[in-house]
Amino acid sequence: MANYLTFIATIGGIYALLALSLNLAWGTVGLVNLGLVGFFAVGAYASAIVTAIGVPVVGGIVVAMLAGVVAGVIVTFATLRLRDDYLAIVTLGFAEVVRIVALNERWLTNGADGISGIVTPLRQTLGGRGFDLFYLGLVTLIVVIVWFALRRLDLSPYGRALKSVREDQELAAFAGKDVMRLKFEAFALSAAIAGLAGALYAHFQSYVSPDHFQPLITIYVFLAVTAGGVGRPIGAVFGAYAVVAFMEATRFLADLPFLEPVQVAAMREILIGLSLALILLLKPTGLLPEKTPKATVQP
């Protein structure tokens, strides 16, 4: 049981990084990114590929973040004129492009077989149990650092500028903000965090394949951010852990004697959808909503 909880907490941390990434793009600067899983995949594959040719894991993680930035910049370029629904559709397309490239470019990604035997740092020295604990510590530490950095960013003048783009980009431009640059920077940073999450996932599981990166993950992360509170980093982190805990807790419905396994599986999906609907109905701003600072009184 303790092993399992360690594992779930680690996966929760990786989801929390994805949620922080989405919260930055969607919650802070207002760019709906339905292609989150694509950046996650880019990071996972980038690190898996470069560590396979001898780069140390730390290097792999850096490469994964850079790959995320490059992908983020490309997507922002492609979507400069798009907002809202249109942007969402294009980013959704981007994630599918990544998945299909990973499926078909066998020389690079080994196709549908996926890349197995990815380096798991220190596993040999620490043993299975030790590795799980070490990795939980590592992922949690990174979540705390990224959360803290994003919180600082939120509270800074730069963060206010990003939020002004979210609220009204014409007005932000009118006030002298370089809207395009802000969008580029925020989206690239967001993509780097998703890439980081991907690298951490790859080195934890030691196997990635195109099947891993289905749009379902993006939906779970949207659920996490919505439930936690759009626009507030701690909300995203809380939401991510809550969603993973909820998904795992619903497994134990199988203990109810009157449900068949297939009904339990369907029930889990119903409950996840239902809980999102309920949160949106009862607490549309999320469980830890964004705090809007009071306007300063002019002297």
């Binding site: 779930i8 795992e248 497994r251 396994p261 599986a265």
Partner: peptide, 19 residues
Amino acid sequence: EDTQTNPEAAVRAARKLIE
């Protein structure tokens, strides 16, 4: 347990079964 035909979900399910 359900794999959801997805290796990410399947690993979580397998961990639950084993641990």
